[in-house]
Design a protein around this nucleic acid. Structure first.
Lengths: 353, 353
DNA sequence: ACAGTTTAGGCAAACGTTTGCCATGTTCAA
DNA sequence: TTGAACATGGCAAACGTTTGCCTAAACTGT
């Protein structure tokens, strides 16, 4: 008889206060192994009586396996890390919300990390999450970084969202950005726009580049020889960037009658610049965005935008992650987008200026 | 000599691939204890030579203590759980972003959980996080739930944000909601509003109730006897709620010339209802919100709103959490708000209808 | 009656860390 | 010379779990 065995019913952890396998085992008068097996559904290894007794105790005491012990043992941690460039961006919040729900439904817990689009922070989080035994990584708008490269080398399960793997390959969830740009071009032409323009951040991510290229290519295809004015703004925040780029674009040459803003936030920046200059949106200048922030329906009725189905990203991400962990080769998932037309604003006061 | 000791340099974990104490110990030819002590800065327990050798190896191999092992041991997990009612709400995203940054600066990692304002999910996350040895909880807009009550009983460190502890007491981070409501009232009166109104969700949280009461009390104080129209909308999403409440309010009695929307999202809902009915905002009806979403500066120039300094919440939360864990008694922290006046929209097309 | 198989369940190692206690060896004072 | 004090560092338990292997006892077939 093991006299070091904990007394039945005595609380175990000074730390957690939760009932542990040992508690149940002591109370049932069986070994920890037996309880562990029964708790994990291996019912063939004990007598029916024992199984019943242990199951009753598990239910009674509300035993739930401790994930930390499991992690340490090398089992599953049920932890997935999501690295996002900035939580402030409504698009990121939408992705985070949908992913969180999908992960929870699949029995996982999500750790959300804000990388501020900085390689060093991305690396720090990659390391921190690895040592917490995260079972997978979701990297939204990844940037190239040493630790990411290392993770890829070790074949850790990483799903890229929105922006492709900077080192190439790997599962990707997003939309057909070139097509989205082309759709935006079609929309502007359909609206009778004659002299379209485009603004974008100075440092082009793959995502933005594809959108802009898709836009320009489609215009060239349908209106050969048409010159499309193009201007960039300082990187970082897309709001500021859109504002600055719009001002730069229009400083010489005035306002175009239609313009692609490759993200909704840039369109918001442009909207502010227009307001300051008394330019009417969308009458004087018709913007088309990409993202279609949910708030558009409420407060940006002047913005037509390509809707990216962020609510559907969660499921796609979790599916890819599972396939990846199962060892299947996983490719790109391009979810369907569609342009949402908004023709006009609600009645608003005109600028008194 | 312990022949079961791992060979120096040999990778330890099939699981993590990280260098462990045992790796360093084997390579240095000392025991795990010694390495642990040196790694934790206890330099008095080993000779200078040993310390130097071990420190060199730690640096060389990039050893970082495994947080899971630490957690299990009962040490600190450096994990803090934040429970938020819905990530979609820009205000939540702002709080999450600022808290994440503050926690990271303090050496913590944040787990973000979306409770969808549901008591059962709040409980599930509370349990899950406790068994992951979370060192603290940040509950944004808490709802009453059995597990929350249990957590409070066990004196677990919980900081309440935005909405007070439904069971009373405990640290709280927020603003003076009554004062915010009063400020909104002053603003409307200063704008010459004669017949103010207010809309709010049908099920009033403490937060919203305080705002509305502060508003009404101030109006009564400054304009005794003035009747203020008041209408509620279905709970849940504040956007839909604001929309529905605005329609209900104006269905009989028409539009007021000024109105308190106790959250920006409700104001957005009202804006849409106004647009649909050709009512000009803010000329025909002047709304005042509370939150002051960052996007307002860009796309809602018609909305004056009480700015809640969400970027400053993070530091306040972390400070409270630390005090709480240190055993100090921690009270409420009311951060300063201020009303942001926006007079008019930019030039926009009038509704062609 | 005896060998072989099944049933029931315990032992112990492993994951990575921390820490109280013990075991050497050296130095120093009386 | 003999303790005592100190320096240096190892042992082992503990946190909670999982699982390969082992050991009894009971049963089966001949």
């Amino acid at each position: 008889m093991n006299d070091r065995r904990r007394e039945p019913g005595q609380a175990s952890g000074q730390t957690s206060g939760q009932t542990s396998l040992a508690d149940i085992a002591a109370e049932a008068g069986v070994s920890v192994s037996t309880v562990s097996r029964i708790a994990n559904g291996d019912l063939g290894r004990a007598s029916a009586a024992t199984v019943a007794k242990v199951q009753r105790l598990i239910a009674e005491r509300g035993y739930r396996p401790n994930p930390v012990g499991r992690s340490l043992r090398g089992g599953d941690s049920r932890l997935v890390a999501m690295l996002a460039p900035n939580l402030d961006n409504p698009a990121m919040a939408a992705i985070a919300a949908s992913t969180e729900a999908a992960l929870r439904a699949a029995g996982y817990v999500m750790i959300l990390c804000d990388t501020h689009d900085r390689p060093d922070l991305q690396d720090e989080y990659l390391r921190a999450m690895r040592s917490r035994f995260a079972e997978g990584f979701i990297v939204v708008s990844a940037v190239a970084s040493p630790e990411l490269e290392a993770s890829l080398d070790r074949r850790e399960p990483i799903v890229f969202v929105n922006r492709r793997n900077p080192y190439g390959g790997g599962p990707f969830i997003g939309i057909d950005n070139r097509q989205a740009g082309a759709d935006a071009a079609d929309h502007l032409l359909a609206c009778g726009v004659r002299a379209p323009a485009v603004i974008h951040p100075a440092d082009l991510s793959s995502t933005i580049r594809e959108r802009v290229e898709g836009f320009l290519d489609r215009l060239e295809e349908r209106r050969p020889g048409l010159t499309v004015r193009r201007c960039d703004g300082p990187g970082g925040n897309h709001l500021d960037c859109g504002y600055a780029a719009a001002k730069r674009l229009t400083a010489d040459g005035g306002w175009p009658d239609g313009i692609l803003c490759p993200s909704d936030l840039m369109a918001y920046g442009l909207f502010r610049a227009a307001g300051e200059q008394g330019v009417r949106i969308p009458d004087d200048c018709r913007p088309v965005g990409i993202d279609d922030n949910d708030l558009n329906d409420w407060i940006a009725p002047w913005l037509s935008s390509v809707k990216i189905p962020y609510q559907r990203f969660g499921d796609a991400i979790v599916t890819s992650l599972r396939d990846l962990r199962a060892g299947n080769s996983v490719g790109e998932v391009l979810l369907p987008h569609r342009l949402v037309r908004r023709q006009s604003g609600p009645a608003m006061a005109e600028d008194p200026a």
